[in-house]
């Protein structure tokens, strides 16, 4: 498999990624469990969680599709960077450098791929399951990044995308004064 050197210019670092979307079979995937040390933030009864340093998350019930075979091995991992503002800032730059932004939208607003702002998750929103989504990829086209970028970077991306869950979009009311319509 052809490898290509990719400069993550924003970070001043270089990483190696495989030229295809498949995982580089020569790279032995490091054990993500070794980095699992910090407890995840606890949800409060209001549905809002404090991510530390005043980061607020909107949490909806995790709702993996019935019958979806979660691999499970990542489920209970804790993110060493949960709520770490510096790591989240780095994660936001990785989000651009690895082209996540053009699938998931600026600030995770949703585009080709799903939004991260709504606090809702197709394959589960815990740190472990988000890590798994990035590490393993998902069937609808999410590439697998495990072994292509470091686990540390995957954890920073995990912290970043989870930090975007800031908007409660459950109800959209069209009857107020804000309804805008142009033309006629």
């Amino acid at each position: 498999m052809k490898s290509q050197r990719v400069a993550a210019g924003l970070l001043g670092v270089s990483i190696i990624v495989a030229a295809s979307a498949c995982r580089d079979s020569n790279a032995a995937p490091p054990d993500p469990a070794r980095q699992a040390i910090v407890p995840a933030p606890q949800a409060t009864r209001s549905g809002l969680a404090d991510g530390g340093d005043s980061l607020r998350f909107v949490l909806h019930e995790e709702n993996p599709p019935v019958g979806f075979p979660l691999a499970g091995k990542f489920l209970n991992l804790r993110n060493p960077y949960e709520g770490d503002k510096k790591a989240i800032a780095t994660g936001s730059q990785l989000f651009i450098a690895y082209n996540c932004i053009d699938c998931h939208g600026a600030d995770g607003s949703g585009a080709m791929g799903p939004s991260f702002q709504d606090g809702r998750w197709h394959f589960g929103g815990s740190s472990g399951t988000v890590f798994e989504s990035i590490y393993e990829g998902r069937p609808d086209g999410m590439p697998s990044w495990g072994g292509r970028i470091s686990n540390d970077q995957i954890w920073m991306l995990t912290a970043y995308v989870r930090s975007l869950a800031s908007k409660d979009l459950s109800t959209e009311n069209f009857t107020g004064a804000t309804v805008e319509r142009t033309g006629h």
Binding site: S109, P114, R120, E172
Partner: peptide
Amino acid sequence: LLIAGDVAANLPYDVRERGTTLPDLS
């Protein structure tokens, strides 16, 4: 998909804000 922002209803895991380009289309 990209511009309207929120005209989907069958994706419980993907609820988006109203699109700013086409406000109110939803």
